[in-house]
């Protein structure tokens, strides 16, 4: 057994800040929507939602820069290698205590399912939420300038809300799947400290 740095400092800050921002965005968003959450009060929830959205976008700009400059973006390139094995692992293997089919490596820390899920998150859900959010915020201006009909705001809102529910579902699945590591807390610990214990010494050579 040995320890490797799986998640860089920036990566961890980015991850947890993003998690926190998204969770508060969810809470404020659902409060504004009128889904029975009364944490901040409508006016504060609206202000907070808008400000946090800008904070999240800023954070994402930094994250994109980090991914490009470090080459870490390659971690998210989808692959079919081990895809079938991963699906099989989650469907049956995991119950029987079969070892994880994909070993983590500094340069390949995401399994093929993670790659797909996170890529979808990054190129689909976040852009859709950001775009519909911006359209929503600037709707009065757009309506004025482009003559948009009132029903287009309804449409923007529906997409934004469905995206939000999608994020909640993502969060549920994401948190659950963190428990599928060596022990239920292995993955979360790695995301907090950056270090992960690798239990298969022969498999990789970090040197």
């Amino acid at each position: 057994m040995r320890r490797i740095v799986l998640y860089e400092t920036f990566e961890r800050i980015w991850h947890w800040a993003q998690a926190l921002l998204i969770i508060v965005l969810m809470l404020t968003g659902f409060e504004i929507r009128g889904l029975g959450i009364h944490l901040f009060g409508f006016q504060r929830a609206v202000s907070l939602h808008n400000v946090l959205a800008v904070a999240l976008m800023t954070l994402i700009v930094f994250a994109v820069f980090w991914h490009i400059t470090t080459g870490e973006w390659r971690q998210y390139i989808p692959t079919r290698k081990f895809l079938r094995e991963m699906i099989g692992f989650y469907l049956t293997g995991i119950f029987k205590g079969v070892p994880h089919p994909v070993k983590k490596h500094r340069m390949a820390k995401l399994n093929p399912l993670q790659r797909l899920a996170y890529l979808g998150f990054k190129v689909l859900i976040i852009p859709v939420q950001a775009t519909t959010g911006a359209l929503y915020y600037f709707y009065p201006n757009l309506q004025h300038a482009l003559g948009w009909s009132p029903s287009s705001l309804w449409f923007i809102a529906v997409i934004h809300v469905l995206g939000a529910f999608g994020l909640v579902a993502f969060l549920v699945g994401h948190v659950y799947l963190t428990t599928t590591g060596h022990t239920p807390l292995t993955n979360i610990k790695a995301m907090i400290t950056g270090w992960e214990d690798i239990h298969d010494d022969e498999y990789f050579d970090e040197a």
């Binding site: 504004i32 929507r33 009128g34 889904l35 409508f42 009132p150 029903s151 705001l153 309804w154 809102a157 529906v158 809300v161 469905l162 939000a164 529910f165 999608g166 909640v168 579902a169 549920v172 699945g173 659950y176 799947l177």
Partner: peptide, 28 residues
């Protein structure tokens, strides 16, 4: 004549979204 935030909640949209979340919770 217009969409009003907090008033106009297509219940179908919320049901769809909540369904999606509940299915995920059920799955995990």
């Amino acid at each position: 004549g217009f969409y009003l935030l907090g008033r106009d909640r297509g219940t179908g949209v919320d049901a769809l979204g909540l369904g999606m979340v509940l299915l995920t919770i059920l799955g995990v």
